[in-house]
């Protein structure tokens, strides 16, 4: 395939900017781009824009809402013929959260994830309390109010908080 034409590249950049304004329904402080679930925006051989989105967790109830919101954002901005595709492989990892996404999470009161590979080995390090910044925290449960969060309590300020799970 030859290099993409400038018009197609510009359209893809515009769609990225557009998707960066589509909020996650469960954690509206984050956009779907911050979450790292938009895998690609590119022009296909059929000359149409293809947008690839990957689910975070197989059972995440937000997946359908994200699909609807993304479709609506594309339609409203004149990209009715853009194709929305579900991408399963490679599976999403919390490592794909953008640095901006991590900062927004912490400001929202949710501890950002640590590196998933290290966390899986049990060497991920503690969650940092989003309220007082202490690293002296304790995990209460690997499960929380949504599939993507684990439940912690801070030993310093005693505030309970969520951590974005590391997978």
């Amino acid at each position: 395939m030859s290099a993409p034409e400038p018009a197609a590249a510009e359209a893809a950049r515009e769609v990225w900017r557009l998707l960066a304004r589509v909020p996650d329904p469960e954690i509206p402080a984050l956009s779907i781009v911050d979450l790292g679930i938009v895998r690609y925006v590119r022009e296909g051989a059929d000359r149409r824009l293809h947008v690839g989105i990957t689910p975070t967790y197989t059972g995440c109830p937000a997946t359908a809402a994200i699909r609807t919101a993304t479709r609506a954002a594309l339609d409203e901005s004149g990209h009715r013929d853009a194709l929305l595709e579900e991408v399963l492989s490679p599976p999403w990892t919390s490592d794909w959260l953008t640095p901006e996404g991590r900062a927004k999470l912490e400001a929202f009161g949710i501890a950002p994830p640590v590196a998933a590979a290290a966390a899986l080995r049990g060497a991920g390090g503690p969650a940092r309390c989003p309220r007082c910044g202490s690293l002296s925290t304790e995990r209460i449960s690997e499960f929380g109010s949504t599939p993507c969060k684990a439940h912690y309590v801070c030993s310093a300020c005693r505030e309970p908080f969520d951590q974005f799970k590391c997978i």
């Binding site: 967790y57 197989t58 449960s141």
Partner: peptide, 20 residues
């Protein structure tokens, strides 16, 4: 409560896998 949430989260993942 933690176990209630834990079991519900497991169920959610399993049903998500079943759907795919």
């Amino acid at each position: 409560l933690e176990e209630d949430l834990g079991l519900a989260n497991l169920a959610l993942d399993l049903i998500g896998q079943a759907r795919l």
